[in-house]
Design a protein around this nucleic acid. Structure first.
Length: 277
DNA sequence: ATGACTATGCCACATAGA
């Protein structure tokens, strides 16, 4: 099962590139962030014609997330309210459309677009930290169902210094403060792992390059787009990579797609298979 | 360097991104 996440920075501007990604990789699950469009204007039909189901949760101009899947989308949950049904505070948080989840082939996909935070001194930084507190509540609530989990998207946090091209200068700033990193680690705790790091331990693996200052040409990026798998799924992972070439497209998103390939559904006797060869 | 690009909304620049 091939799973991909991509911050497209406008689904309408990027739709032909999304089609190309689908034709090239044929992902089973594609999660988009920053779709920047209200649901009635989301270009669903193009994707349906390619054999996909689409569920989107968006708004005009800003934010917006979507799930695009080959298999049936089940138990779709929109916003924090979709999971935290008894929390009256989530209504105002959901004014920004940043989280959608669904069951696909028995896996709970949680597609998130974490707020950027602007700068550490900004009020938006507090909004980000509060949003992360609710993401933890969300995970705590959904984990009671015992579903295998794939939480993925644009986290707007570089977890380690090796995830930033210039940690000496940028560590401690927005997307790389101790507070943000601890918040995300706290959400992951012992239940979710960054699957990219199972296959690649080095630096210089970026998923986002600023449009400005020739960041792409100079390869000065950050790795802020992540795929987290629960322990049962980590054992099924076969590969994970950043599809860097899409950042080199003409009129690109500033993010590249990230994907993971997992063995799913699991082979019945996978452990014994080698024995019989 | 409170900058640089890019997208949106409503057609002028302001806002947001990261």
């Amino acid at each position: 099962m091939l799973i991909a996440t991509w911050n497209v920075n406008s689904v309408r501007v990027r739709i032909s590139q999304i089609e190309r990604l689908i034709d090239e990789l044929k992902p089973d699950v594609l999660c988009l962030q920053e779709t920047k469009v209200e649901d009635s204007l989301f270009p669903k039909n193009i994707l349906i014609k390619k054999g996909y189901e689409v569920s989107c949760y968006g708004q005009k101009s800003y934010n917006g997330v979507a799930l695009i899947t080959r298999s049936k989308l089940e138990d779709v949950r929109l916003g924090f309210a979709g999971e935290l049904t008894n929390d009256s505070n989530v209504e105002s948080l959901d004014e920004q459309k940043r989280v959608i989840s669904a069951l696909v082939d028995g896996i709970r996909f949680i597609n998130v677009y974490v707020p950027n935070g602007s700068s550490v001194k900004s009020e938006k930084y507090n909004y980000k930290l509060n949003w992360l507190r609710y993401l933890k509540k969300y995970l705590n609530s959904q984990s009671k169902r015992g579903e295998p989990v794939c939480m993925l998207g644009d986290f707007n946090i570089a977890l380690e210094d090796i995830d930033i091209h210039n940690p000496e200068k940028l560590s401690g700033g927005i997307m790389a403060t101790l507070e943000e990193r601890k918040s995300l680690q706290d959400i992951l705790s012992n239940r979710l792992s960054d699957v990219f790091r199972v296959f690649e331990q080095g630096t210089d693996n970026w998923s986002w390059w600023d449009y400005r200052s020739g960041a792409w040409a100079r390869d000065k990026g950050w790795r802020i787009d992540h795929i987290y798998l629960s322990n049962d799924l980590i054992n099924c992972s076969k590969s994970s990579a950043i599809y860097k070439k899409f950042r080199g497209n003409s009129q690109p998103s500033d993010h590249a797609p990230v994907f993971v390939d997992i063995e799913w559904p699991q082979e019945e006797d996978a452990d014994n298979f080698d024995f019989y060869l």
